[in-house]
Structure formats: C-alpha cells, structure tokens
Simulated scan of single mutants.
Amino acid sequence: MKTAILIPARYASTRYPGKPLAALRQADGTTKTLIQMTWEAATQVPGDHAIHVCTDDDRIREAAEGFGASVLMTSSVARNGTERCAEALAQIEADLVVNLQGDAPLTPPWFLTALIERMQQDSVAQVATPVLRCDRKTYDMFVEDRRAGRVGGTTAVFDRNLHGLYFSKEVIPYIAPGKVPDPIPVFHHVGVYAYRPAALQAYMTWPEGVLEAREGLEQLRFLENGTPLACVEVDARGRVFWELNNPEDIPRIEAVLGGA
C-alpha cells in the first residue's frame, strides 16, 4: 500500500495567525518552528512513506524547504486540513493518505503506525483517527481551558465497535466536579487521520456541515454524511501528548520538550 503522509499548514489561522512558524524552545536551548517539529515527527514513522508539507503560503513553503521538506502548494480556499489534503492528492499517487496536522509536534510515530495498520487490515474502513484516554493531567488541562474560555483540544465519544459517535471542543462525556473516576472516561481526539483516496474525493463534494461549522471540527463532515470514522485507541506509553492550539500551549509543550 503506497502511503503518503501530508502535513497541512496554513498561515492565516483565525485563532493563531502564523502558528506553523511559531518557535518552540528545545532542551538544548535552541528553537525550532512548529512545522519543522511536525515534519520531524513524520520522518520517525517506520516505513517507506512519502512526506509532504501542504500549504498555500510562501512563508511556510520557504521555511519548510529550508529544512529539507517536500512542499505541495494548495489553494487559499481550503477551509481545513482535510480539504488541503484532498487538493494535494491530485499532485501525488497514493493508496492511503495520512493527515498529520501541522500543530501536533508531540505526536508519537506509533500513533500513525496504528492508523496505517488499521487501514491495511480493514478494507471496509474509509477513514480512521486515533483516540487517547485522558490521564488526570490531560483531563485537568481540558477543564482549565474551558474554564478560561479557551478552545483547546478535542474529545471523542464512540460506540462499542470504536466507530466515532461525536467529536467536540467541549469535554465529553460530562463529569460532575469532584466525581472524576479512574480510569477517566474521556478520550482525547488526536488530530491525525488516515483516508482512502475515495473518501477524500467524496469529502470535497459535500458542503460544510452544520455541526462541522458549529464546532469547527472538519471530521464531523464525514459523520454528517454517513461515513463512519474508525477510532483507533492508542497508548501514549508514558509520553505527554498535546497540540498547539493557542499561544498558551507553547509553555506546555516546551515543558515536555525540556526547553521551558
């Protein structure tokens, strides 16, 4: 199966303009941009996979080419990473497309491997995405963000067959304060996707969904059009996982990197 790992990145983010070029301090005191760290995470995935940064912005293109990445230019009308990946698909040959969004430098390589293996083993699945059970620290960060009015990470609920039921920027399912059980029944949605080419092509024919627009979550377009998402539960193996959603996330990620 010919697999391409695409890293969609845009400069004109509403919540965090220029986010892919945000500099994060490393353990050795140097800095790297978010897009470089995400690209380096993609290179750690075992296997012979093509890796491309997909963007519409020359500043991101120049930065990516500067650290040796292949870049596919896409249009400025792409509203999310899935649409950007769908546009890039026309420029490559692939049996499977993995979308590693450009704001997730802490994504372990085995998360992507788990998606690729799921799609190789399940010929029916059209889209797959990882989910990670929250530990207490991650759950508290979710609650802290919502209390502060910040739109942070995404949570997921799914059925007993691991088919996604809903994804939200709210913390779901609801847990009453002071009654957090162990294990915590909240799953962090990891913003990585694996698609069959046909699923990407179909996505582009559908209008933006009502729930997708309300939540600002691209994956809901699949659910709103009856295409199930296979959720793949992954294990962080003791590593901290968090995306860079807001400027306030920089110190969180730098603390993990040892550069704080």
Rank of each mutant, 00 (worst) to 15 (best):
I35W: 06
W110V: 00
S13L: 14
V186M: 10
T107V: 13
L24E: 06
R196V: 04
P251N: 05
P181K: 11
L112W: 00
D103L: 12
V97E: 07
R237T: 00
A64K: 03
L112K: 06
I60R: 03
D58M: 10
R214D: 12
R84A: 14
N161Q: 15
R150E: 06
E254T: 04
I116Y: 13
D58N: 13
I92C: 11
I250R: 02
S123P: 07
M37S: 14
G102V: 01
I35N: 10
A198K: 11
D28E: 10
A199N: 04
F167N: 09
V186Y: 03
N161W: 14
P247L: 07
T43L: 15
Q120D: 14
I51F: 12
E62P: 04
E208G: 06
I51S: 10
N225W: 06
G259D: 07
W110I: 01
A12P: 02
A42Y: 05
M119I: 11
C134R: 08
L24P: 01
V186S: 10
G149F: 07
T74F: 07
S76E: 13
D182L: 01
F187Y: 14
L257Y: 02
T138K: 14
D182T: 14
G18K: 03
P251Y: 09
L257V: 06
A202E: 09
P177C: 14
D28V: 09
N246L: 11
D145F: 02
F241K: 00
D58E: 15
N99S: 09
G29T: 09
N80E: 11
D145V: 03
A213I: 04
L211Y: 10
N161T: 15
C85T: 04
T33V: 05
P247Y: 05
R118W: 07
S75Q: 13
H49F: 10
V180C: 03
F142Y: 05
T113W: 06
H188Q: 10
Q120C: 10
Q36L: 15
A23R: 15
D28A: 09
P108H: 03
D249W: 00
A194H: 00
P20E: 09
F158G: 11
W206V: 00
H52G: 04
A69I: 05
